[in-house]
Design a binder for these strands. Structure first.
Ligand SMILES: [Zn+2]
Length: 689
DNA sequence: GCAAGGTC
């Protein structure tokens, strides 16, 4: 293949124009179909395209760069229902780079004799290719090419089995764009307009099918975390010794009911400092290698191991992909199909710093390379894997992500790890039961390659029934169980994946958007909801409960499915949304409370009553104090639980409130409310809440 | 100015 633009690049007629979704795909398709004739690489300015000539025909393979067209606005009012599809570069600054692709299509396509939409086989790919052919070619002379992987065989098969253009998918794709646009633009504008009417000020506010449910989930988590009030339990920590080895022993499935009971047991154990072994068991646990990464797994692991945000990880992975160091990263697949040349890749990787690891892997597998396959799949791409190409220079965070991907890939070919577990049951002289657990790695298996999942080792001695374990030391501890809910970019990403909203390409981006809009904010290592975020959520809830729930996505999916099956037209579905939104937006424009609560949230207006504790808008009165929803809920929760706490900790109310106000395992609003009760000398039993 | 979805 010639690298330079030759005369041939300008002399073709009556050719087949094949549209690919992106430059990388165009290149792969060109290389696969190149066997049909003479292949030449040409350029339209910077954009590469490919020409294949054989006796009878000429094929041009032309890359798009994702969507070149999208719905755009025509006016500034709300409600707005007129949708005009326009080239993205004309109205979206960030998409200006698509102009070259657009110009290439507009200059080459009109001369083609026929067209093939060879974009990814999903509704977005159907729209991408269709809009291009419709704008610059002739959809009546167009066919659809369907391939499941970009490998030579699949591509050649697909090329020889072209289908008619998939108009149903195109219509479903149009509907997806237009529905998202209608809901997003209209509700966003309603929020901004309500705010403007109230304050005469302008700010950027937004709502959407994916961002708004994610904001709602963040708020649910934030409330749960800040109202967290666990039941404490008492534990006895025993340092045991056997055969010179010391290890930790704790009560087995029980705990002292009260502090005084715990103290008595401690005294008893110190007088009778020996435990009898009732039972000792060893077992092996086989842990298979984790599958190769999809984007979500990579984002979670790089957050766990390096503390990178999902967006940062994705940006780095996308650059590594453009440098051809890794395969396509925006994939949900955890599978490594056989069509990937594992052997070649592993061989190439051994030219990098992975040589020793790979020698070990080849020895261990005796050259039989069968990677573990994960459950998750993707319609268009395999899991993320290294290409084997040697990085020119790679360091810092780029190297960290690359290294994660290589090691995860290698470990997929390795053997299961074998963990040795031991469990001992012991009893004291009054027949109370205790336990200790041990964990060791017996065979490393895949952990040799993907070292980031090494378990925490805890060795205990090998014991037999009726062995005597000496008690060295006894400690009492009040344990306040830690909350198991988290609010962070990664936990929101996990949630979006679980409820299946957004896509690989958009989830991290949309999470960042919530911070950019100042709905969410970083406080140290934690994420918090701002007053604005909460007010926007409440306002959207007033407009549509569906829009703050993943149910809207399910609803869209059902409708798109009906369109692609030909049961409804795109216009029927879109018009229905237009009518509904017009009605609800007009109605809510009259609701002054939306603008008012946004103005209060931003401190532009003062609420009628302010929370004594946090100065938020207060809707509750306790004695003479005004409280917001959050601190009022905290107060009820403290009141509900205080009797139990008095019982377990055997202390008075004030001391317990003091503990609650200082203990960092307890939710912020519970701590603040406890402090409020102490400082104002309020007797909680007498309160009506 | 607003969405979500492609991709440089
Ligand atoms: Zn408050």
């Amino acid at each position: 293949m010639s690298k330079n633009t030759s005369r041939n690049c300008y002399s073709y007629k009556d050719f087949i124009a094949l549209i690919a979704e992106k430059p990388k795909a165009a290149e792969k398709i060109a290389l696969a179909l190149g066997s049909y004739g003479k292949l030449e690489k040409c350029r339209y300015y910077k954009v590469p395209y490919y020409v294949i000539r054989s006796d009878g025909r000429t094929i041009l393979i032309l890359p798009s760069a994702g969507h070149l067209f999208g719905p755009s606005t025509t006016g500034r009012g709300v409600p707005i229902v007129k949708i005009v599809w326009k080239p993205l570069w004309e109205f979206d600054k960030a998409a200006y780079y698509t102009k070259t692709y657009y110009m290439m299509m507009s200059s080459i396509l009109p001369n083609a004799g026929s067209y093939i939409n060879a974009c990814d086989f999903d509704i977005e790919g159907s729209v991408i290719g269709y809009k291009i052919i419709e704008s610059f070619g002739d959809v009546k002379k167009a066919k659809r090419m369907k391939y499941s992987t970009l490998t030579k065989n699949d591509i050649i098969d697909a090329f020889n089995k072209l289908s008619p253009l998939d108009l149903e998918n195109v219509n479903a794709g149009y509907a997806r764009h237009e529905l998202d646009w209608l809901w997003g633009i209209n509700v966003s504008r309603l929020l901004m307009k309500s705010f403007k009417n109230e304050t005469n000020k302008s700010i950027s506010l937004s709502a959407g099918r994916v961002q708004s449910p994610t904001l709602a989930e963040a708020i649910r988590r934030w409330i749960e975390i800040n109202l967290y009030l666990p039941k404490p339990f008492l534990s006895i920590l025993i340092l045991g010794e056997y055969d010179g080895k010391r290890f930790l022993i704790t009560p087995k499935n029980w705990s002292p009911k009260t502090i005084s009971e715990a103290k008595e047991i401690k005294k008893f154990l110190e007088k009778n400092p020996v435990l009898n072994v009732d039972d000792y068991q060893e077992s092996k646990e086989k842990v298979p290698p984790p599958p190769a990464f999809n984007l979500g797994d990579l984002q979670k692991e790089s957050s766990r191991i390096y503390g990178f945000s999902p967006f940062k990880t994705q940006s780095i992975a996308e650059e590594l992909y453009l440098e051809t160091l890794i395969s396509y990263p925006r994939t949900n697949s955890q599978k490594l199909p056989k069509t990937i040349n594992y052997k070649q890749i592993i061989n190439d990787l051994s030219k990098q710093s992975y040589k020793n690891l790979i020698d070990t892997l080849l020895k261990e597998t005796q050259g039989k390379l069968n990677p573990v396959q994960g459950r998750e799949d993707d319609p268009a791409h395999p899991a993320i894997y290294p290409t084997g190409e040697v990085p020119k220079k790679i360091y810092g965070d780029y190297l960290k992500i690359y290294d994660l991907i290589v090691r995860r890939f290698l470990s997929a070919f390795s053997k299961e790890a074998i963990l040795g577990k031991s469990y001992v049951t012991l009893s004291d002289n009054e027949n109370r039961k205790y336990k200790a657990e041990g964990l060791v790695v017996m065979e490393e298996g895949w952990l040799k390659y993907y070292t980031f999942s090494y378990p925490k080792i805890n060795e205990i001695p090998v014991l037999r029934k009726n062995d005597k374990v000496k008690i060295i030391k006894v400690d009492l501890k009040t344990i306040w169980p830690k909350i198991n809910v988290s609010l962070s970019r990664t936990s929101l990403l996990r949630w979006m994946e679980r409820v299946n909203i957004g896509t690989e390409a958009t989830r991290a981006r949309i999470i960042e958007l919530l911070y950019k809009r100042k709905y969410l904010i970083n406080k140290g290592r934690n994420t918090e909801i701002t007053n604005l975020g909460y007010a926007v959520y409440k306002a959207i809830e007033l407009v549509s409960k569906e829009l703050i729930s993943p149910e809207l996505t399910r609803n869209f999916e059902e409708k798109l499915d009906l369109i692609s099956k030909g049961k409804y037209t795109k216009d029927e579905i879109v018009n229905e949304a237009k009518e509904f939104l017009t009605k609800i937006i007009k109605e809510k424009l009259n609701d002054k409370s939306i603008g008012k609560s946004l103005a209060i949230a931003l401190g532009i207006e003062k609420p009628e009553e302010m929370c004594y504790i946090c100065k938020r808008e207060a809707k509750h009165k306790v004695l003479n104090y005004s409280l917001c929803d959050f601190h009022f809920m905290a107060l009820s929760k403290i009141k509900e639980n205080i009797a139990d706490l008095v019982n377990i900790l055997e202390d008075n109310d004030v001391n317990i409130l003091k503990e609650l106000s200082e203990n960092k395992s307890i939710g912020l609003w519970i701590r603040e409310t406890s402090k409020f009760l102490i400082n104002n000398d309020i007797k909680i039993q007498n309160l009506k809440v």
